Computed example of a mutant assay.
Amino acid sequence: MAVAMASSGTTLRLYSNLKAVEKLPIAKAPLFTCSFGLDPAQGFCILSKKRFPSSEGRLVLQASQATAVEGESSQETDQVPIPKVIIDQDSDPDATLVEITFGDRLGALLDTMNSLKNLGLNVVKANVYLDSSGKHNKFAITKTSTGRKVEDPELLETIRLTIINNLLEYHPESSSHLAMGAAFGVEQPSQQVDVDIATHIRVYDDGPERSLLYVETADRPGLLVDLVKIITDINIAVESGEFDTEGLLAKAKFHVSYKGKAIIKPLQQVLANSLRYYLRRPSTEEASF
């Protein structure tokens, strides 16, 4: 999996360029290559000069602010649901699964699918199901160039921001529930992002060959890329995982290992301390995972 860093530059570029331009260039810097869903023995990062093809490196915004919110007349007095975007690298060995939920307000999401295809991706709508939280729209995504799942954290982050951007454009009422709404939504979040939201970090053993890392923190653009870089910077391999956006929160689950083995307790503490130092959020003992 390739990570384009430095972390702060990537974050600022992803964050600022998404706001006002129609195309977002991605790979301006050399890439670091490391495993994400691959053999844990390949978990160390090496410098590479590979860059994205132009079709993958441009975020083309398809949405229009003038588009009417679906069902607005009957729902404008309803409680606005919490938007959720889940990027799942674990459930399918051949494809990245994406799930989008926003109550019953999402339509066919053709605009979102088209925006993702403009990133050089094959997008197939897997299924739609209903439960108490609303309609869940699932997509199976592969890279057009390889026919395989997406293994680059920067491209995964671009996928996430593309989906969230379309939510903000087509459903402006979602902006008060999304971290990105603080910058360019029509309504500011009631909580102060990065201030009022606590960070939780847990590491658990998951057999002799890998551990499970859970991170819950305030969402922001570039977070997925930065988390992977922090982990791999201390020579811990990221094998696979899931990244959930739930309103203002980001929840990450990573399968991690060190030299093909589960992470020992002292290294677990180093990993947790490194993440806490970087995220610099208030911390409590209670978490939702």
Rank of each mutant, 00 (worst) to 15 (best):
Leu121Ile: 04
Ile164Asn: 02
Asn118Thr: 10
Gly147Cys: 02
Leu161Ser: 06
Asp111Pro: 00
Lys135Phe: 00
Thr146Gly: 06
Arg160Thr: 14
Val128His: 00
Ala126Asp: 11
Val123Gly: 07
Gly103Phe: 05
Asp94Pro: 00
Leu156Trp: 04
Ala95Cys: 13
Lys135Ala: 05
Asp90Leu: 15
Asp104His: 08
Gly147Ile: 03
Arg105Glu: 09
Gly103Ser: 04
Gly107Met: 10
Lys149Val: 01
Asp152Gln: 04
Ala108Ile: 07
Gln89Met: 13
Val150Ile: 14
Val98Pro: 01
Phe102Gly: 06
Thr96Lys: 06
Ile159Val: 15
Leu121Trp: 10
Leu97Pro: 00
Leu156Glu: 04
Glu151Ala: 13
Val123Ser: 09
Thr112Ile: 15
Ser115Tyr: 03
Thr101Arg: 14
Gly107Phe: 09
Thr96Asp: 05
Glu99Ile: 04
Asp131Lys: 02
Thr144Tyr: 10
Asn137Tyr: 07
Ser145Gly: 10
Ser132Cys: 04
Pro93Val: 08
Leu116Pro: 07
Asn137Lys: 03
Asn137Thr: 12
His136Ile: 13
Ser145Glu: 11
Lys135Gln: 11
Val98His: 02
Glu99Pro: 00
Tyr129Ile: 03
Asn118Gln: 12
Phe102Tyr: 15
Ser115Asp: 06
Tyr129Cys: 07
Ser145Ala: 15
Val98Cys: 08
Val98Phe: 03
Leu119Glu: 06
Gly134His: 09
Arg160Gly: 12
Thr146Val: 10
Lys143His: 07
Gly107Asp: 15
Asn137Glu: 09
Glu99Met: 12
Ile163Phe: 05
Thr96Arg: 04
Thr112Phe: 08
Ile141Met: 09
Val123Asp: 09
Lys117Val: 09
Thr144Ala: 15
His136Met: 10
Thr112Met: 15
Thr112Lys: 08
Ser91Thr: 12
Phe139Glu: 01
Glu157Phe: 08
Asp88His: 08
Leu106Asp: 01
Asp94Asn: 14
Thr96Ser: 13
Asn127Glu: 15
Gly120Gln: 05
Lys143Met: 14
Leu106Gly: 06
Leu116Cys: 06
Ala140Tyr: 01
Asp88Thr: 08
Asp152Val: 01
Lys117Ala: 12
Leu110Tyr: 11
Leu119Lys: 02
Thr112Pro: 08
Val128Asn: 05
Phe102Met: 07
Phe102Asn: 06
Asp131Ser: 02
Glu151Trp: 07
Val98Asn: 01
Leu121Thr: 03
Pro93Arg: 07
